[in-house]
Simulated scan of single mutants.
Amino acid sequence: MEDVEPHIIEAVEQKDSNDPLRVLKDVAAGTCGGFAQVLVGQPFDTTKVRLQSSPPGTYTGGLDVVQKLIKTEGPLAFYKGTLTPLVGVGACVSVQFGVFEGMKRFFSKQNISNGKTEGLTYAQYYFAGSISGLANSILACPIEHIRIRLQTQTASAPKQFSGPMDVIRKVQQSSGIPGIFRGLTPTLLREGHGMGVYFLTYEYLVNRDMATNKIERKDIPGWRLCVYGGCAGYGVWLSAYPFDVIKSKMQTDSIDATKRQFNSTIDCARKTLQASGVKGFFRGFVPTILRAAPVNASTFYAFELAMRAIG
């Protein structure tokens, strides 16, 4: 990877690589971030998925989804399928942050061994984030698949699934193990690129704050960490949202392989474009972008607080 000197961020705060518990601490802090992400973001996510996966004309927008959900299914409908993501997203975010922190240490050591500053380049931050996203995809794909199946059940239609385990059982019976991992390709695309932008945005803002104000990472006020986390959330969705739409469409398609509307990621993208044009790749974008700031602000804030407490 080419090093571009003007893009080197000098003020990165490195963790003690000799700490035998470093990885476990990173994972534990990431899990705290994941729990915060689910609890804050689940209502937004349910609204987004309903918009993405419902037939055109079902809802006029995010507010219409909210109104109809409250009227027909009650406020708790926003938390349908929450148990799976609470456990699963906690695991996913712990993987994201654990791998990212590990890649930061790897690149720092590599830079030092090459006689350069230990600070990472922008490209290295992006690549570290991308690797964390790809690693997370293996967990995120089936977890999100299960959650989406539960989120899209409506009170007006016969209940197809009684819970997460029932989703797994019925999907596996109908389509085998590959069926559980349906939507993996767009998940890899979303996470690989999106997490690169996500972590690059956050780390750039944090390092600029440390350099500008001559402070350490632990001294950055919580409100500024929240702002940086919110900006990172905007970055990931502005750069990778169409992949998420394709993933949602594939994961809400029939569990019976012989009755599916979409045969592949490319087929789903082609049919979406034919049916709705470019705007079809941005259905549900408004609740997603509204969700981005509070959800990712809470994720990074919880992570940073946990890291400060753990040491």
Rank of each mutant, 00 (worst) to 15 (best):
Q160G: 06
F161N: 08
S162I: 07
G163H: 06
V167R: 00
R169W: 11
V171H: 05
Q172W: 15
Q172A: 13
Q173V: 05
Q173C: 09
S174A: 15
G176L: 07
I177V: 15
P178R: 12
G179I: 07
I180C: 03
I180E: 01
F181Q: 07
R182P: 05
R182V: 09
G183C: 08
L184V: 11
L184C: 07
T185A: 11
P186K: 02
L188I: 15
L189F: 13
L189M: 14
R190G: 12
R190N: 11
G192Y: 00
G192E: 00
G194Q: 02
M195E: 02
M195F: 12
M195S: 09
Y198G: 02
F199S: 02
L200M: 10
Y202P: 07
Y204I: 14
L205D: 10
L205C: 10
V206I: 15
V206L: 15
N207E: 14
R208D: 13
D209S: 11
M210C: 12
A211T: 11
N213V: 00
I215W: 13
K218R: 13
D219M: 09
I220H: 04
I220R: 03
I220G: 10
P221N: 07
W223Y: 14
W223G: 09
V227D: 04
V227W: 11
Y228C: 00
Y228K: 02
G230S: 06
G230R: 06
G230N: 01
C231S: 06
A232L: 01
A232N: 02
Y234M: 08
V236E: 03
V236P: 00
L238N: 04
L238R: 05
S239P: 04
A240D: 05
Y241M: 03
F243W: 09
D244E: 08
D244C: 09
V245N: 05
I246N: 08
K247Y: 14
S248Y: 10
